[in-house]
């Protein structure tokens, strides 16, 4: 789920950036530092939408770096248990398959794949129904439900299921391949 929240961070700026574009430099560095990171508390920071406030800088003794407290608005993405997501399959093996929904990695184990889908090994490992009409392989798009999350300080990992109504492949695997 996406959230638009205000976060705060202390930015350290090298003295060489001091000058007329100090603020721009600071924001550019903030984006470089923060976007794409993951915190267990807020989830993945997707994008910074604005800077609310930059406090007074404080020169650090000895180094000459200056610390600015910065308040910024950003979009974060945090997966929740029970949430339905659309994801792209990245890897298929006999244990199940891995998929990505943006920055989040999701694993679907084979017993959470519908019973009528069979694992086919080979050049392009896939899960296929007995009549071959539905096929899950690399780059397939699937809709899945998150049934468990593992949240570390800098990492979020999920497991999902496609064994429920309206879950499973949402595009034509042949076209994607």
């Amino acid at each position: 789920m996406f959230f638009h929240i205000v976060l705060e961070r202390n930015m350290q700026l090298h003295p060489r950036h001091f000058g007329p574009h100090l603020r721009d430099k600071l924001v550019a560095k903030l984006m470089r530092d923060v976007e794409g990171t993951c915190s267990g508390r807020h989830g993945f920071v997707v994008a910074i939408t604005g800077v609310e406030d930059i406090g007074k800088g404080l020169i650090r003794e000895g180094t000459g770096f200056v610390t600015f407290p910065v308040k910024y608005q950003c979009v974060v993405f945090r997966p929740f248990k029970g949430e339905i997501l659309e994801a792209v399959v990245t890897m298929v093996n006999k244990m199940g398959f891995f998929a990505e929904a943006g920055p989040v990695q999701i694993f679907v184990s084979n017993h959470l794949i519908p019973d009528d889908m069979e694992f086919q090994s080979g050049d392009m490992p896939n899960y296929t129904t007995s009549d071959g009409s539905v096929k899950i392989q690399r780059d397939s798009e699937v809709r899945l439900k998150i049934i468990g999350t593992r949240v570390d300080a800098t990492e979020i990992f999920c497991i999902g299921t496609i064994k429920d109504d309206f879950l499973g492949v949402i595009n034509d695997p042949g076209a994607a391949a």
């Binding site: 093996n93 990695q105 694993f107 184990s109 084979n110 049934i147 593992r150 497991i159």
Partner: peptide, 28 residues
């Protein structure tokens, strides 16, 4: 019966260490 909401567990036949599906990324 429904295989629902269960986290698959894996076990090492050698050392008996147990993992579950949430560790999958590290194990692959």
């Amino acid at each position: 019966l429904e295989d629902k909401n269960t986290v698959q567990e894996y076990i090492c036949p050698n050392c008996g260490k147990r993992y579950n599906a949430l560790d999958a990324l590290r194990l692959v």
